[in-house]
Design a protein around this nucleic acid. Structure first.
Lengths: 218, 218
DNA sequence: TGGGCTTAGTCTGCGCGCAAACCACCACAA
DNA sequence: TTGTGGTGGTTTGCGCGCAGACTAAGCCCA
């Protein structure tokens, strides 16, 4: 009874949310019976949810059992390369296909987000919304789907690069530049701006990571 | 007993193969109990397989039941845009990261495939292998995974553009150009050549489709 | 004391059956 | 003839339990 989060969410959504919120961290073992009890359903829907998550590479197999997938340094780099390309494509397409209303929403988002520069958690959520809006602006369902996958994999990363000192402000300036390129209908510029934005985010993450590693003594 | 195709393949693989072979066509309804009987397992593993296929958008829901997804004209165009971008990226990365052995394999493939120009079915299989080899040459696991998804969606299309008169020869010339660009380590050229290749394939498919449509009187 | 065998416990894979939702068909009435 | 309500059959969602595999711990023997 205490676990009735949303009116009715299926096991898949529940487990995804749990990973997203960091309740289960990369490397954690997911035991069917445990999840079943936690969410108050039987093992069957849990099994189905786990398999779906496995096909999206959010879970991987360790022997017979499933664990939350973790990204090593190489995989992180590979992920960012693909992400930059796809986000760049989304920006290019958005410049061509976004409606004036969609562009207006993007502009409003950038303006609203400026008021959150000091709240990394809120900024991170706003950031997700912003990028999602660009994806939708591309009016390409496959691209949206592929980018969803990419962002879901990124949920495996505990920290957000927006937590870095000063990165929030920078990121917002970059967002503004992207939106203006899209508003102008300049696809090349929009794609380049978004690729550069992703590249900076990756760079920031790498710096954060090496910092963390030093602090915790890995 | 008659259905024991491979020693042990799970339901997921079996259903995927059945869609691939055209046993189930876009729009066909997939009934759990039917599949269970056909493959000689109970409904449980079938259900799991169906859900996995649904998360990959190979199946879609029609009311409560699952049908094989079909691609309308818009979706086809959207798919090809994403495909061109990802394949282009793969070529670019392959130019940078492929080993000499991998390049040699690509060259051999092009040479071997020239002997099949008159067999569209064999050519189609060889084509899949060729592109897969380029994906692997990128040495980017995420990219390989994303491209797998794209190609799986393309399995929903009944015809191969290689069936068009003369397309086989053209495609092989384009393959050769791509391989040479990769061999030279010229990423930009490789990406452009592969994008152009995909673009031609799409064009051919569109011509084929309009022809088909005229013939069957849609 | 150490190595191998046995045994108990855990967890996944899968079959099975019930209940609820949905669809189609039909009958009856306006 | 058309609209409305009921009813049966089909199909999915899910709980449950068994069997097999794998793990780990303990015991016996060298």
């Amino acid at each position: 009874m205490a676990e009735t989060r949303l009116p009715q969410a299926d096991a898949y959504t529940l487990i995804l949310a749990a990973i997203d919120e960091g309740i289960y961290k990369p490397g954690d073992r997911l035991v069917e019976s445990e999840l079943a009890e936690r969410f108050g359903v039987s093992r069957t829907p849990i099994r189905e949810a786990l398999q779906r998550l496995e096909t999206q590479s959010l879970l991987s197999r360790d022997g017979r059992s499933l664990i939350v997938a973790s990204l090593d340094h190489n995989q992180l780099a590979e992920l960012y390369v693909v992400r930059a390309e796809l986000e760049g494509l989304a920006a290019r397409l958005a410049a061509r296909h976004a409606t004036v209303e969609e562009v207006r929403v993007l502009r409003d988002m950038v303006a609203a987000d400026r008021r959150m520069v000091d709240d990394p958690a809120a900024l991170s959520r706003a950031n997700k919304r912003f990028h999602k809006q660009i994806h939708l602006g591309s009016h390409n369902r496959f691209l949206v789907q592929q980018l969803d996958l990419v962002h879901r994999s990124m949920a495996l990363l505990a920290t957000t690069s927006l937590a870095a000192e000063g990165r929030g402000g920078e990121a917002l300036d970059e967002h503004a530049a992207i939106v203006e390129a899209i508003a102008r209908g300049d696809g090349d510029e929009a794609a380049e701006a978004l690729k550069a934005h992703i590249s900076h985010a990756f760079e920031t993450r790498l710096k954060l990571e090496s910092g963390d590693r030093r602090r915790v003594g890995h």
